[in-house]
Design a protein around this nucleic acid. Structure first.
Lengths: 346, 346
DNA sequence: CTGTTAGCGCATTCAA
DNA sequence: TTGAATGCGCTAACAG
């Protein structure tokens, strides 16, 4: 990369000081703590700033104060509402705390460890989602003295972790489906793909056990629409038999449900379908998809907040912080229609 | 804010140099241009870096090289796929070009101008969406010597602008609906809300004119689901009469369509509905929503790329760059079912 | 209330 | 191929 231009207009704290007839210390003061500067001087400085179009170079400040005032966030990608909401929460809270957010999307990176190293260079702390960044990379950041929080990932000593509740809501949801009289439930999605999912499967198992019923092995497929469609096709050929599907997320649930319906089957009469995440589509399809709403924005906010506290010298929290989730009943589970439709999330 | 901890583990280029028994210049070289350093020395330095967990402080580098190697992106928010895709494209391209991306979400900020000023402080260039940031703020950044590109906004001299094509695809779409024999079309959404929307309404008008028909005035409502629902209610009372609705975006189209259907009306038999954006839900509802797909990721990529070129000394492009869009026909416009469903976007 | 001064950590001449 | 020296722009004592 050839970079020709210099940063900024060229106006520095020096030129501003000169223009205003004061010292650079005074200029710095009117920017940091205006109240300690005499009104007259302050105004002269502000005028100089204005006429010179002075924009401070944050790097110089960062160097002097010895921190970046920025948090990094590593997410896999942004398709679907999940990560976007997480990011919104994170950014909002970070901004409230005066921190910039530098975003790194892992899926599009050919050399992620390198990208993470680079990122670590310009932030005070890092939030990473699940297991997107390899453990050694995380350790490097930690050893460099920068706090790391893991969102919806494996819990490990030394890194704070934040997650939504999964197991007990999964158990409730499964129990709910069982109460509808369903006998052959299938959990669709690979529990080993992410801690979140394994937690959900654990709940699935738990609900069966407490009724002394034997839970089926999970159907280990990935979480994209395509995977759901393919699975539905295999159901249509009789390869899988079930009267209820507990899907690892809504995308899966929706694609399966739609495929089955298009093939002439009825949801929930022939098979009930439930999912996870309460994406927008889940409110619009018919029957409405029963699902679990997670406080995704809250996860982001909490992450930003913890990062800031850790940077400010707070102690790392040794056990994972778990945020509650909420089951949203619609009709795909077998519940009767007629309830007022769940409102869009605020 | 009280910030106690210092950035980094304390390891600096000095401690690394000392540990490796070389000068800091050599350490700097093995990081910037390893090939100019003798293999032996290089290894010693790398070892030192490793054992000291050295992570460079980007601020110091930025200060020395006089640029930030970061681009700012200001978006209103991230609900819905539109901005998220834009951001994904932007981030991916920026990363390819070695630039970090600092994200600022406008909607959650109480003092946006201040936030923008702050942001300008730490980036070499800025991309802003539409009219989210006020003109004076944009001018400041520009005058400070930092390039700005506006995405899907008003075109102005001195700022580069990038947008998706709207008018001609709107004309085609409207024409398509007219061909289905619809007589009373309504454009739903406020054209003054954004340049994108006014372009779409212009196409709507154009299509009518070329058939010597008089276009109706636009229904000036906002673009959220709630607004659509409220509008649908007004249709149900007869306040608005139409046999086809050209909606400013999919969220509007979907909420209206669903409400009308829930009230017993048939789409498209009673009223055709079309939208804009091709969100995920549009594939899943029945009838499938006819809509216009925009190259949203492409907008983001292009913005990042132009920013980088501008920072590297490129000249600002005086006329707006317009990316093509594509009409996605499903059944809500009156087209017969049976076509293979449009695949998910890749 | 204001000015002087000494770093902050790194890149980059210029010599050797 | 390496080292010594200088400056990037700003903050924060410290003095006055």
């Amino acid at each position: 990369m050839t970079i020709a231009r210099q940063t900024g207009s060229g106006a520095t704290i020096y030129s501003v000081a000169e223009h205003a007839g004061v010292s650079i210390a005074t200029v710095s003061r009117v920017i940091q703590r205006p109240e300690v500067v005499a009104a007259g001087t302050r105004q002269r400085v502000l005028d100089a700033i204005e006429t010179l179009s002075y924009v401070p170079v944050s790097a110089a400040r960062s160097l002097a104060v010895r921190h970046h005032e920025a948090h990094g966030l590593v997410l896999p990608e942004l398709s679907g509402p999940y990560y976007a909401e997480l990011l919104m929460g994170f950014e909002a809270r970070a901004a409230e705390l005066g921190q910039s957010v530098i975003l790194l999307l892992a899926d599009s990176k050919s050399d992620l460890p390198r990208a993470v190293r680079q990122l670590a260079t310009r932030v005070d702390a890092l939030a990473v989602f699940g297991e997107v960044v390899d453990q050694p990379s995380v350790q490097r950041v930690l050893q460099a003295g920068k706090p790391v929080v893991v969102i919806a990932g494996e819990h490990r000593a030394g890194v704070e972790s934040i997650a939504a509740e999964n197991t007990s809501s999964a158990a409730q949801l499964t129990e709910h489906v069982l109460k509808h009289g369903r006998k052959r439930l299938l959990f669709v999605g690979d529990p080993d793909a992410a801690p979140d999912i394994s937690g959900r499967y654990a709940g699935f198992v738990q609900a069966h056990r407490s009724r002394r019923r034997k839970p089926a092995d999970p159907v280990r497929i990935a979480f994209r629409e395509n995977d759901g469609t393919a699975f539905a096709d295999r159901m249509l050929t009789g390869e899988h038999v079930a009267d209820a599907l507990v899907c690892a997320n809504d995308e899966l649930a929706l694609s399966i449900m739609t495929r089955l319906q298009d093939a002439g089957h009825s949801v929930p009469d022939d098979v009930a379908v439930v999912g996870w995440d309460d994406v927008m589509t889940s409110r619009y399809v018919r029957p409405g998809l029963t699902t679990v709403r997670q406080p995704v924005g809250g996860l982001g906010r909490l992450a930003a907040e913890r990062l800031h506290e850790l940077v400010s010298g707070g102690a790392v929290n040794d056990d994972p912080q778990v945020l509650p989730t909420r089951i949203v009943l619609r009709q795909s589970c077998g519940c009767p229609p007629g309830g007022v439709p769940a409102p869009p999330r605020s």
